[in-house]
Write a protein that binds this DNA or RNA. Structure first.
Lengths: 231, 231
DNA sequence: CCAAAAGTGTTGCAACTACACCCATGG
DNA sequence: CCATGGGTGTAGTTGCAACACTTTTGG
């Protein structure tokens, strides 16, 4: 391990997805522990940090070409894997001998990325060190590993900022989507309700969407149109 | 050196100042080389990254309580001190034996901060590894060490973004300043001219300034008022 | 016909832009 | 007086919020 990775540095990815009108984060559970954490990993000696983040995401989600953005680097002194009961279990999960405390007790600096993925396309791929993974609602996360709760909060703030200038919301949806699905994405990220008519007008005035056809819902009443990003 | 600092990690500070109606960056020259670089340093084993940045700034400028903001972490594979002619000289300037290539050829990840300081208060304090320092115009920088030019550009972009929501411009001025000085700060950071009357109205409507008295310029014509931040 | 989806119209507010214009003052 | 600093007024624009209203369409 020591030979392959840059020491003292990790990458943590806040993977956002959208499902059932909720903003979700993909979390992993360390094997044989109750400890949930963000998808994280290390940086190879011959690898850009951006590449490392992309690789970690591919390993966990099976997706390539993911929308990814670095948002903050966490370097507090307290960021270490001190040998508490919990972290000893994590160490075991990582396949490290219990005696090798040196690696875990070292202090880590982590570079935070957030990813926006199409929930429906993700094939969760548990790695060796985790035995479960789950999409959890951003607004109802359990206590996570280390300061990962704080990292999620920072990621969400960064995402909110980007929402206006970059057309980032579409990354959370599939190829096609209805207008109300899009509106839901905006509403849950911004944390407030929007007026339907004004929202539609604004989005359509950008002239980046192509309307296709009706969506078959099976339900009674008129089916909504489907849209797709132009070009 | 190896015992005191986190390995493979550095901090680089883009120190902005304002002088003669120009936005300046404080640069340091490595001893006995023509190589200019940002104020940089390393992170102590028992030190937060934020603390490290603050310490580096204090060492270089003699100021405490500096406005400081982390903006990006640069982790490209190419970020290393490969033993080119130039970098060998830098290594010597750092007081490292020429044989110890290992340290220099290692790959570095640097955490970028930008600082806003009161130009007039800075007492430049050359450290051991630099024999000169200079305030240079942001728009006319020479080729800097490694990718430091890119770091400055990224810092400026981040600063521009923050300019609106955080009242950051005042950090570049002294206790008191005239309205046109303030306007100049905005104009040089944003890179465009602003209409005087509208600018004044906007700033004054924030009700965060206190007008004091006339400024004595010695020049002919009416002297401008001085302002100070409230509270 | 009903209910949901989709779109139009209008009103008002707030912020910003661009200018025209006036007052103050030091020499 | 005049050049510079400091300030007011106002007309036009844009974007947004709120809400009323119409049209479309699947069952």
């Amino acid at each position: 391990m020591e030979a392959k990775w840059l020491p003292g540095i990790s990458v943590d990815c806040v993977i956002f997805g959208f499902h059932e009108n909720q903003l979700k984060v993909l979390l992993l559970k360390f094997s044989k522990t109750p400890v949930w954490a963000l998808a994280g990993g290390f940086v190879g000696l011959e690898e850009d940090v951006d590449q490392a983040a992309q690789r970690i995401l591919e390993e966990r989600t099976g997706l390539t070409d993911i929308y990814l953005e670095q948002f903050y680097t966490f370097g507090d002194l307290e960021r270490n894997y001190r040998a508490t009961e919990e972290h000893r279990d994590v160490q075991t999960a990582m396949g490290l001998p219990e005696k090798e405390i040196s690696w875990l007790s070292k202090r880590y600096i982590t570079i935070g990325y957030y990813a926006l993925v199409d929930y429906s396309k993700v094939q969760v791929n548990p790695s060796g060190m985790s035995d479960a993974s789950e999409w959890m609602d951003v607004s109802a996360l359990p206590k996570l590993f280390l300061d990962h709760n704080r990292i999620v909060i920072k990621a969400l703030e960064a995402l909110r900022q980007r929402l206006d200038d970059k057309l980032v919301a579409f990354e959370l949806l599939g190829e096609t989507f209805t207008m109300s699905e899009l509106q839901m994405v905006y509403e849950t990220i911004l944390g407030k309700r929007l007026v339907r008519t004004n929202f539609q007008r604004k989005i359509l005035s950008l002239e980046i969407l192509h309307r296709i056809e009706k969506k078959y819902t099976g339900g009674a009443h008129k089916a909504p149109y489907l849209y797709r990003l132009k070009a």
